[in-house]
Amino acid sequence: MDFFPNIKTQFQGTLKSWRIYWELYGGLKSIFSSTYFLIAMFFTLICFPVWWSGNDDWAWFNLCNSVLPNILGFTLGGYAILLAFGSSKFMELIAGKQSKEGEGDASPFMQINATFLHFIIVQVVALLVSVFSLVWDFRTGYMAFLGFLLFSYAISVSIAAAFAILRLSRWYDIFVSNNRE
């Protein structure tokens, strides 16, 4: 009968991981005030014919189901490369708690990781909503709006992930330049 206690332990570990992510990312406030969310909302609204009226031959979820798996695979590969990026001294520099004034703030290393994890989570949720909508044929209505918004947000958050890589690359460039002197 170790089965049920094991499920409880697994569930608690999963909840702890989600809390860490949510705290690092900044919660709903960070999502709804994000430039990338606003871009996704604007794009979703101007593309209203896709999710508002639908089409008998084609639906918004077909686009999501063909695009998102490719982006998700690329993202997971890129994330693995990102974690192997740089030297161990550089990783030590950007990891760990920052100065006393910044106590409680996430280190740059954890901020980059939270950005990539958010990108992956948004893609997976958008893909799940898309598959659910395909199964239940939600071509129009609120579910179509939500699904297309998640899809648009997944695409726009890719820009945030790209900028996270740019920031990391810049930090690494500064680190290498300072160590040459």
Rank of each mutant, 00 (worst) to 15 (best):
Asp2Trp: 09
Asn6Asp: 12
Ile7Gly: 00
Lys8His: 07
Lys8Asp: 06
Thr9Ile: 07
Thr9Gly: 00
Gln10Asp: 04
Phe11Val: 03
Gly13Thr: 03
Gly13Trp: 01
Thr14Gly: 07
Leu15Asn: 06
Leu15His: 01
Lys16Leu: 13
Lys16Cys: 02
Ser17Lys: 06
Trp18Thr: 03
Ile20Cys: 01
Leu24Ile: 02
Leu24Val: 06
Tyr25Cys: 04
Tyr25His: 12
Gly26Lys: 03
Gly27Met: 08
Gly27Pro: 01
Gly27Val: 03
Gly27Leu: 03
Lys29Ala: 11
Ser30Cys: 09
Ser30Gln: 12
Ile31Glu: 10
Phe32Pro: 08
Phe32Gly: 08
Tyr36Gln: 14
Phe37Arg: 05
Ile39Val: 15
Met41Ser: 11
Thr44Ile: 11
Ile46Trp: 14
Cys47Ala: 15
Cys47Ile: 14
Pro49Ile: 10
Pro49Ala: 06
Trp51Met: 10
Ser53Lys: 14
Ser53Ile: 15
Gly54Val: 13
Asn55Lys: 09
Asp56Ser: 14
Trp58Phe: 15
Trp58Gly: 10
Ala59Asn: 13
Asn62Gly: 13
Asn62Gln: 12
Leu63Ser: 04
Cys64Met: 10
Ser66Leu: 14
Val67His: 04
Leu68Pro: 00
Leu72Ala: 08
Leu72His: 00
Phe74Trp: 05
Leu76Trp: 01
Leu76Cys: 04
Leu76Gln: 02
Ala80Gly: 06
Ala80Thr: 09
Leu83Gln: 04
Leu83Glu: 06
Leu83Pro: 01
Ala84Phe: 05
Ala84Ile: 01
Ala84Ser: 08
Phe85Tyr: 11
Lys89Asn: 15
Lys89Phe: 07
Lys89Tyr: 11
Phe90Cys: 07
Phe90Lys: 02
Glu92Tyr: 09
